[in-house]
């Protein structure tokens, strides 16, 4: 892997917050809407939260791996 220039490394680091929050919030919103649609509360919202957290973790791991 070639060296990433300084400014884009900074941009990558700044995206950490977005990646974490968008994954978790996205998971919860999708879960909430599914629950409302199917009337399965709280199955989908909990699953959405779990998947969102895992997604955020994976996203963070990807960013950190590229930073180095």
């Amino acid at each position: 892997m070639g060296r990433i220039p300084e400014h884009s490394r900074l941009a990558l680091a700044l995206s950490v917050g977005t990646v974490i929050s968008s994954n978790i919030v996205g998971g919860i919103i999708v879960g909430y809407l599914l629950d409302r649609w199917l009337g399965t509360a709280p199955v989908a919202i909990t699953t959405g939260l779990i998947l969102g957290t895992i997604g955020a973790f994976l996203g963070l791991y990807r960013i950190v791996s590229r930073l180095n």
């Binding site: 950490v16 974490i20 963070l60 791991y61 950190v64 180095n68």
Partner: peptide
């Protein structure tokens, strides 16, 4: 380099999990 890389990975992911 490897040691630094490991530390930054562990730190960032650890901070995330602590937040959760």
């Amino acid at each position: 380099r490897k040691s630094n890389e490991a530390a930054i990975k562990y730190f960032l992911l650890g901070a995330f999990s602590s937040g959760i």
